[in-house]
Computed example of a mutant assay.
Amino acid sequence: MDESRGTDKSLADETYRTLLDEILSTKLAGGSVVQERRLADRLGVSRSPMRDALGRLEGQGLLVRNAKGVLTVRIITLADYLSSMAMRLLIEPSAAAQACEHIDDARIADLQAMLDAIAADPDPDPAFVWSFDHALHQGVGEASGNPFLADTIVQMRRYTTIFERQRKLAQRKPGLSDHQSILEALKARNAEAARAAMTLHLEQARQNVLASY
């Protein structure tokens, strides 16, 4: 591979990850106009990797064109949230059950340590709480052994995460007991318990959102 092409790809990947994180954290809020040149200047990259990163995000549905054809950050509606959560309820309990067979003890221990740190901290950093949530749900997807299922979980969680964060619906310590039940089932390699714990966790998250309306 040409060295310059490799550098461009690396920059595009880094730019994509940065923008994805800003969208998921709602630093780039829904409805915001995406100005390629301004973003490129802010991140200190040329317009080529920026254009590549924006194209990927648009392809994933996180950036959309408004009626005037202007690129904007997608606004995640309640309908989007509920549809995404319905998909998660269909597949994540099965992923959790399958993960019992494949997830390694070290990953479970890391997740438990993160959850213990959140529980012990009277005012945990929200970024760390979200990092744990991401690590748990993505870890379950990856450990399911089904890459298509894992990818769908990642995609659906993006919509639910953005919605919850843009409306500031997450609690300081959301779902501690739910998450602990999931980890206990994974530790015990109890597939049916993991399935039930994940179902309960997602359903309670859905109900909490509906209760806020």
Rank of each mutant, 00 (worst) to 15 (best):
residue 198 M to E: 12
residue 135 A to C: 04
residue 101 E to I: 07
residue 32 S to D: 04
residue 75 I to F: 07
residue 14 E to T: 14
residue 79 A to H: 12
residue 91 I to Q: 02
residue 90 L to F: 10
residue 53 A to V: 13
residue 60 Q to E: 15
residue 101 E to M: 07
residue 46 S to A: 15
residue 132 F to R: 04
residue 49 P to S: 05
residue 152 T to F: 10
residue 3 E to S: 04
residue 129 V to L: 07
residue 29 A to Y: 02
residue 147 P to I: 04
residue 83 S to M: 10
residue 21 D to G: 09
residue 173 K to S: 02
residue 150 A to L: 06
residue 19 L to Y: 02
residue 5 R to A: 06
residue 1 M to R: 12
residue 193 A to P: 05
residue 140 V to H: 07
residue 24 L to R: 05
residue 213 Y to G: 04
residue 37 R to E: 13
residue 79 A to S: 15
residue 131 S to E: 15
residue 107 R to S: 03
residue 212 S to F: 09
residue 56 R to I: 14
residue 182 I to G: 00
residue 98 Q to W: 10
residue 76 I to M: 14
residue 79 A to L: 12
residue 82 L to T: 13
residue 172 R to A: 12
residue 80 D to H: 13
residue 112 Q to E: 15
residue 30 G to R: 03
residue 16 Y to K: 01
residue 31 G to Q: 09
residue 150 A to H: 09
residue 24 L to A: 02
residue 6 G to W: 12
residue 182 I to M: 15
residue 35 Q to A: 13
residue 81 Y to T: 04
residue 39 L to K: 03
residue 57 L to E: 12
residue 162 I to H: 08
residue 172 R to H: 07
residue 43 L to T: 10
residue 199 T to A: 11
residue 74 R to P: 04
residue 166 Q to E: 15
residue 171 Q to T: 03
residue 187 K to H: 10
residue 1 M to V: 13
residue 164 E to R: 13
residue 88 R to E: 15
residue 146 N to R: 01
residue 121 D to Q: 05
residue 83 S to T: 14
residue 48 S to M: 04
residue 140 V to M: 13
residue 44 G to R: 01
residue 20 L to V: 06
residue 75 I to C: 02
residue 29 A to S: 01
residue 91 I to E: 02
residue 169 L to Q: 00
residue 104 D to R: 00
residue 188 A to I: 11
residue 23 I to T: 07
residue 117 A to D: 09
residue 95 A to Y: 11
residue 113 A to F: 07
residue 89 L to W: 04
residue 118 I to R: 11
residue 19 L to R: 00
residue 87 M to I: 13
residue 49 P to L: 15
residue 207 Q to H: 05
residue 66 N to M: 05
residue 157 R to S: 08
residue 3 E to A: 07
residue 28 L to Y: 06
residue 119 A to R: 04
residue 183 L to V: 14
residue 142 E to H: 08
residue 209 V to E: 03
residue 37 R to K: 12
residue 163 F to E: 07
residue 109 A to L: 08
residue 212 S to K: 05
residue 31 G to R: 11
residue 84 S to V: 10
residue 134 H to T: 12
residue 144 S to I: 09
residue 18 T to Q: 01
residue 50 M to P: 02
residue 128 F to K: 06
residue 210 L to V: 11
residue 19 L to P: 03
residue 153 I to P: 01
residue 164 E to K: 07
residue 96 A to K: 05
residue 8 D to W: 08
residue 205 A to E: 02
residue 144 S to Y: 08
residue 33 V to P: 01
residue 171 Q to M: 01
residue 133 D to E: 11
residue 26 T to P: 04
residue 18 T to I: 10
residue 2 D to I: 13
residue 72 T to E: 15
residue 154 V to M: 01
residue 164 E to S: 04
residue 158 R to P: 06
residue 174 P to G: 02
residue 16 Y to F: 15
residue 9 K to C: 03
residue 178 D to F: 14
residue 2 D to F: 08
residue 64 V to E: 15
residue 120 A to Y: 09
residue 172 R to I: 10
residue 70 V to N: 11
residue 73 V to L: 14
